[in-house]
């Protein structure tokens, strides 16, 4: 389970993602981003016809999450697609092997220029959940 909250930011979009596990934090962050690109699409569509394999290495888990989201964003634009589901095969502090599943779309609702590293910090909160803030440059 994961929960996504939209927080205030003067010019861009700030999300807070809270999840039961690290894997769900990655999936929640991805679907949060997808919901900016195309509102509610992931809630409505179960017919995910596109698959993209992703393998990434980064300096730490927070940077890995941002690099993963950047990769998915690039794939979204190149394929004109929204990605709604994530299967993780391997996740360490600095490495991710996964597949994302999505569907093609005609038009995005919003343009995300980039997923920024600003304010992102994967932490375990007082209730034992995994959380981070994410800022998207719009």
């Amino acid at each position: 389970m994961y929960k996504i909250d939209l927080l205030n930011h003067t010019a861009d979009i700030r999300l807070k993602v809270v999840a039961d596990s690290e894997e769900e934090l990655f999936e929640g962050s991805m679907t949060g981003m997808s919901s900016i690109l195309k509102e509610d699409l992931c809630l409505k569509n179960k017919d995910l016809t596109l698959e993209v394999y992703i393998e990434l290495g980064s300096m730490n888990k927070t940077i890995l999450l941002i690099d993963f989201l950047s990769e998915v964003l690039t794939e979204s634009y190149i394929n004109h697609a929204i990605f709604c589901k994530l299967s993780i095969y391997e996740l360490t502090d600095s490495f991710l092997k996964a597949k994302v599943f999505g569907l093609p779309i005609d038009r995005f609702d919003e343009e995300i220029k980039a997923v920024t590293y600003h304010e992102a910090e994967i932490q375990v909160n007082d209730s034992g959940h995994w959380q981070t803030n994410l800022i998207f440059d719009i």
């Binding site: 003067t10 010019a11 861009d12 920024t116 600003h118 304010e119 800022i135």
Partner: peptide, 9 residues
């Protein structure tokens, strides 16, 4: 100017 991410806009 306003808040950006890293550098202010």
């Amino acid at each position: 100017a306003h808040e950006g991410y890293g550098f202010p806009i």
